[in-house]
Simulated assay, not measured.
Amino acid sequence: MEKEKFIDGAAECGGSALGAVAGVGISAAIAGPTGVVVGALFSTVIENTFKWAGEEIKTRCLSKVESKKMNAVCQLAKERISEKLAAGECLRQDDFFNTEEGDRTSAEEILEGTLFAAQRENEEKKLPYLANLYANISFVEFISRPMANQLIKLASSVSYRQLVILSVIGKSQGGDCDIKLRNTAFRGFENYDGASIAAEIYDLYRSSLIISSDAILDAASFTPALLVMNGLGELLYKYMELYNMPIDKEGQEIIEFLTDRSPNPEKGKVVTGQLPIETRAEIEAMVERKTADIPQLRVRREMNSAGGETVTIG
């Protein structure tokens, strides 16, 4: 199949994230077809940027699936830009859309990064949020070229479920919805589902997209109510428009996990992970005391697989 057909001929996509733009290729998006793009007239700089992207992509060999994903993000980004222009917002007035001699514009570079993030993305539900990110970057002057590349890289690296986690934490942090995160710490999980979600949260914490007023030493011990978005996490939340993310099945699972809505939250839990400070202090005091009221006290310390210390008291 010719390369152009990968770009210009998107197949039917059913009910996936691509469904809204099924049958619309990169070239069609550049031309601005009626009935698809809201508002027929874009500024010349936007049209030139998307035209450049379309011509560049045509030189690459893509699979049908890759083509469809890139088509979707290209089209959705144009629609979101059109909506913002129609609402009276102005494109950034710095050099984002301007080029120096022998160089391409920042707008072209960031669009290419966004589209090729879409090409590699296996979770189609992330595609609208990648499109939102590019569209919003086109309006926000304080997001420099390096920062924009960093945001695209971060958005590409996190999972859809991690975006849902950011959405839930952000909505709770803003107080705009009835989501009250539990204020008691986890001490382990009764099943792999909980452990898997906790690992996603811990990964966001290690990436500094979220922070906690209490240090989180491993994935098995943290207090949801103490989690807040940090710097770049806030930027992803705002400019990927995660505040508009609907509560789907995964969203409901995250909400139940991070709140006290899950049934029997403490029943059958296996205590794993880092002990709270007060418990560790009590153990240390017991070890040091060696008083007559605990004549048979035996304490054994071992390094565990999580990199912490397991203390066995007998």
Results as ranks from 00 to 15, higher is better:
A11C: 01
C13T: 06
A17I: 00
A17P: 00
V24P: 01
S27E: 10
S27D: 06
G32P: 01
T34V: 06
I46P: 06
N48M: 12
F50T: 13
F50C: 13
I57C: 12
I57L: 14
I57T: 13
L62A: 04
A72P: 00
A72F: 00
V73H: 00
L76I: 05
L76N: 00
A77W: 01
G88K: 08
E89D: 12
T99A: 14
E101V: 07
R104S: 10
S106A: 15
E112F: 13
E112M: 12
A117R: 03
K126C: 00
N136S: 13
I137R: 08
A148V: 03
L151H: 05
I152N: 07
S156P: 00
I165G: 02
I165V: 12
G175A: 06
R182E: 14
T184K: 15
F186V: 10
F189A: 15
D193V: 14
G194T: 12
I201H: 03
S221A: 15
T223K: 14
A225S: 15
M229G: 05
L236S: 05
Y237L: 10
E241R: 13
M245T: 05
P246R: 14
P265L: 15
K269C: 15
P276N: 15
R280K: 12
A281Y: 02
E284P: 00
M286E: 12
V287D: 09
I294C: 11
R298F: 10
R301S: 11
G314H: 10
